[in-house]
Design a protein around this nucleic acid. Structure first.
Length: 420
DNA sequence: TCTGGGGTCCTAGGACCC
DNA sequence: TCTGGGGTCCTAGGACCC
């Protein structure tokens, strides 16, 4: 038996933690660059502000109803997330952290002693007490059913935030009420496809012939169906699998038209990617760079391209990554375009300490690389200052816009809330 | 004026091997 | 008219998730 615990309106709930005055106010949180709405409080949802909508399209609604707007404050959300997760780890024997605001729990054995509904309420109460954010809990014999239960817990207030789907009749009843698109793993494309076959609800999907499902989707869809019917295809993963790819990409606050400026941005992303790969204790052999103009602006010509440099040896040294990234950039750069976004992608990781060299490889590790990189990372995480590579530039006019940023209440000394 | 970022998995098709 | 069989590896593209 699985439980899925999920924080309601996570980013918006975080912003409320230190702003009790906003308890009943509509709140939206924006994506990087203050571009799109990525989280909404219940009140904002009721106003009809849709997930993912560009800010300028709901400007009027926001002004009219005095919606409170925040830029994304990931340092803050990540800190609250880790508090929620460690609380959950104390409550259940096995926990899989699935995303910043969700975790699957293995609750086998707990049902007899506690009663699942009671246990769910206990989780809600504990997290509300110790962290202050609201969560919903769904129980089911598979992850997909636990997800479904959680969906019901969120959508039906009568459930008081906890739904137990151990019972097959209850599963079927709920599935008959839920749109097939709201099943975990079925997005817009697939649900449109399924609708062609008269499959509208989750129950119709669960009951459809497996051969049809396999034909219209892939094994992934087939597994989703099996999970809805109670067969476990996806087990709890307590140890997060090693990353296969690390991406650092951003839209610019203003268009880039000069190679020298783009070089700065790419350097910046490459060194950020270096930090990430070192944090993973991995080393990358491939560095890819992509650049593109805005796909939304119809008046200006569109250009998008990417290039990959294969290093021939795995590295976690920012200097290698930067050099490769700049080299890749120069092969795809075309003047005369207004670039809106760029990114650096690392892949082809080798396990730390196990570097496979080929016979003719001239590679010898840079002396002191490890010491230098870890010193840089340490300084940059100390909060006392920043060191960076000259290539990253000093002006950074392209840096993302965050005009509505809340204080880093829990992760920066100077931002600690004061009580007078 | 203004449209996010970071991931995973699967499949098909091509290149290549014996 | 006929044109082997079996395999690996890689990449691009499509789908999904939060």
């Amino acid at each position: 038996m699985f439980a899925l615990v999920d924080v309601n309106n996570f980013y918006a709930s975080c912003e409320r933690l230190f702003r009790p005055d906003l308890k009943t106010k509509p709140i939206v949180v924006l994506s990087n660059n203050d571009g799109c709405v990525v989280a909404r409080s219940q009140e904002a949802k009721r106003l009809g502000i849709k997930m993912g909508v560009p800010l300028f399209k709901v400007r009027q609604l926001i002004d009219q109803y005095e919606v409170v707007v925040f830029s994304s404050n990931y340092a803050f959300y990540a800190d609250i997330s880790s508090r929620v997760m460690s609380t959950l780890e104390a409550l259940a024997p096995e926990v899989e952290i699935y995303s910043i605001d969700e975790a699957f729990l293995d609750v086998n054995g707990l049902s007899n002693t506690f009663g699942l509904n009671n246990f769910g309420q206990h989780i809600r109460h504990t997290i509300a007490q110790s962290i202050g954010v609201p969560v919903c809990v769904g129980f089911g014999p598979t992850k997909t059913l636990a997800k479904l239960a959680n969906y019901a817990a969120k959508h039906y207030p009568a459930t008081k935030g906890v739904v137990d789907l151990s019972n097959t009749q209850r599963q079927r009843k709920l599935m008959s009420l839920v749109d097939v698109e709201d099943v975990w793993g079925i997005g817009r494309r697939l649900s449109n496809k399924l609708r062609h076959f008269g499959i509208e609800t989750a129950l119709e999907f669960a009951n459809a012939p497996a051969a049809l499902i396999r034909k219209q989707g892939t094994v992934v869809l087939e597994r989703t169906q099996a999970e809805l019917n109670g067969t476990v295809c996806d087990d709890l993963e307590q140890v997060p699998p090693r990353k296969k790819q690390i991406v650092c990409s951003r839209s610019f606050s203003q268009r880039i038209t000069h190679l020298s400026v783009m070089r700065e941005a790419v350097c910046d992303y490459a060194s950020r990617a270096g930090e990430k790969v070192r944090a993973e204790q991995a080393a990358a052999s491939k560095v890819a760079v992509f650049i593109r103009t805005s796909p939304f602006v119809k008046q200006a010509p569109y250009y998008s391209n990417s290039a990959t440099v294969t290093l021939g040896f795995p590295t976690d040294d920012s200097r290698d990554l930067i050099r490769a990234a700049v080299q890749a950039l120069e092969t795809i750069w075309r003047p005369g375009f207004e670039y809106a976004k760029a990114g650096v992608m690392l892949s082809d990781f080798s396990e730390p300490g196990r570097i496979q060299l080929d016979l003719f490889n001239e590679y010898s590790p840079r002396p002191q690389s490890k010491a230098l990189m870890s010193t840089i990372d340490k300084i940059n995480h100390s909060g006392k200052g920043l060191v960076f590579f000259a290539g990253q530039g000093f002006n950074k006019d392209w840096k993302m816009k965050r005009q509505h940023l809340s204080p880093c209440y829990t992760t920066r000394w100077s931002d600690l809330p004061r009580v007078k």
